[in-house]
Amino acid sequence: MRHSVTVRVGPAAFRVGADWRSPIEQLRDLYRDYPAFGGVPDFTVSLSAARPWRRWIRPSVAIGGDFTLPEAAPLPLAHGLLAAEMAMNLQMALGWRRHLLLHAATVERDGRALILCGESGAGKSTLAAMLHRTGWRLLGDEFALIDPATGDVHPFPRPISLKNSSVALLRDHGRWGSLLTGTPKGDIRHLIPDPASIAAMTRPAVPALLLFPRFGFDAAAREVGGSEGFVRLTTASTNYTGLGEAGFRTLTRLVHHVPMAAIDYPDTDVALTLIEELWR
């Protein structure tokens, strides 16, 4: 393709190509602190004009690649970076087999990992960014990668995708990607993980606590039992079924060894307090 870049995050490398210069330049900027990658990438993503004339006239980006969803609608070129990030997520969700993937944010302290597992809107990314700011190492805000051989969490520290309200909470902190306005997810900006998290992106951590956060409710915390946790995690995993026996062994080990709790929170300060209490 006309423009391309290869980036590596944690264990996975992506080749992203585009018909236009701008999304590739934005990606280069977003990933400029990540180590260069010169090998054969795990996944290919292509951002191409939905129709030939759409390269110039109201340019719109069709998402292609090794793994695609037929219902993924094209995005305007101004959201090309979002298209690239979504496409990279999609490759992991549908194509990655070396770890059990949980839709979760993960941070680490003292070699132990905290997994925050929740649906979109549960506030995973915001909580991960806030914890990261207070000194936790960022392992990832989108996927927790559980190693079937060891049970450890492998980092996948992509830039954290934050909505406008959360951007305001964290402004003046860290390095940011360009602002994307009016996307299907609202206004979005990416917070780049700190250099220590990027430098340690191949160093796993032992899962120590698994939380299911829920935003917009009065503060509450309750223990989650094995059966409930197992069901919640199978539905939060994009590749549990695909991994077969390895998925079953990995998930049952996680559920048996890691304490689980559901927490409700009305705002992030309350959530951080709850988390610190449960972490001890």
Binding site: G226, S227, V231, E245, F248
Partner: peptide, 22 residues
């Protein structure tokens, strides 16, 4: 069959089908 006790359920992984049953 692979079985894991999850109180109150038992998770059963069935190798030929690759399916998990609770």
């Amino acid at each position: 069959l692979l079985q894991a006790s999850l109180d109150p359920f038992t998770a059963v992984f069935h190798r030929p089908s690759g399916q998990t049953h609770l």
